[in-house]
């Protein structure tokens, strides 16, 4: 079973966001593998361990993204491909999906995994766009998965519950928290990772032009949200405080 896992390198979720000249600054920010993509990579590795085959982890990014890919190799992925090109620096989700789709079109796979969204822009676009570009069926936001006899049965979150989807392979699946418990890369895994293949390809290698991956959306400006001011702390006996709170919620905040 050949599996591709698509990952993005993102800010650590604990990172403090600093805006510099209308853009989010990455100065001094710790970078990690997007947490949802870790579930994707973990699921890919588990399926490989069960069924044999190969896990290829792919990403679009710059020099630093190699660290994220190495991390996935240390977890147990077999090889990695990074699409790196100056023309991708300012692209958007559709541009990334286009580049990834071109890369995957030249590969053999039964399953494509993504994280359900990246914790940076929270757009949740690339998985479905990639599926569309590859003409694959898609099941997003999955929390359970079984693969047998060339068929996947996946449980995905929907509003107010979940649904169970059946689909023939190949398919694109995007992972939600709860799908599995992500392993820590073991020390032998880390030592082996440096001997595994990490290939860097450019747009030219994929026979794509800068126009092919041109952004259709542009981040004009980013700003910090208005700071929330600390309100009042109510003090006194429990009964008094509670009565005070209910009154404030009714009359001042008007929310109940």
């Amino acid at each position: 079973m050949n599996i591709v896992a698509c990952i993005k390198q993102t800010f650590d979720t604990e990172a403090k966001i600093v805006i510099d000249n209308g853009q989010v600054s990455d100065q001094g920010v710790n970078l990690i593998v997007n947490p949802y993509d870790e579930f994707a990579v973990e699921e890919a590795i588990r399926l490989k361990e069960k069924n044999g085959g190969e896990v290829v982890v792919v990403s679009v990014g710059g020099d630093k993204t190699q660290e994220a890919l190495r991390y996935c190799l240390a977890m147990g992925a077999d090889r990695a491909v990074l699409i790196q090109d100056p023309a991708l620096d300012n692209t958007d989700n559709i541009g990334c999906a286009t580049a990834l789709a071109k890369l995957l079109a030249g590969m053999e796979y039964d399953l494509v995994f993504c994280g359900k969204e990246a914790v940076d822009d929270g757009a949740a676009q690339v998985p479905s766009m990639l599926a569309e570009k590859l003409d694959l069926p898609q099941v997003n936001v999955i929390t359970e998965l079984e693969v047998a006899d060339n068929q996947a049965t996946a449980t995905r979150e929907i509003d107010g519950g979940s649904e169970v989807i059946e689909v023939q392979l190949p398919v694109m699946l995007s992972a939600q928290k709860g799908l599995n418990e992500v392993r820590y890369p073991s020390l032998p895994g880390i030592m082996k990772a440096k001997r595994k293949e990490l290939k860097v390809v450019s747009l030219a290698d994929l026979e794509l032009s800068a126009d092919d991956v041109a952004a259709k959306t542009e981040l004009v400006a980013a700003e910090l949200p208005p700071a929330r001011k600390a309100g009042q702390v109510l003090t006194g006996e429990v009964e008094e405080v509670v009565a005070q709170l209910v009154k404030l919620l009714q009359d001042e905040a008007k929310v109940i």
């Binding site: 676009q125 479905s128 569309e132 898609q138 997003n140 936001v141």
Partner: peptide
């Protein structure tokens, strides 16, 4: 930006070559 909207919009945007801003 519901479960359905999140699933559907990017697929359609990619098909039509339309720019999409989520959420």
């Amino acid at each position: 930006h519901s479960a359905i909207g999140k699933d559907l919009a990017p697929r359609v945007a990619a098909r039509l070559g339309a720019g999409l801003v989520s959420d």
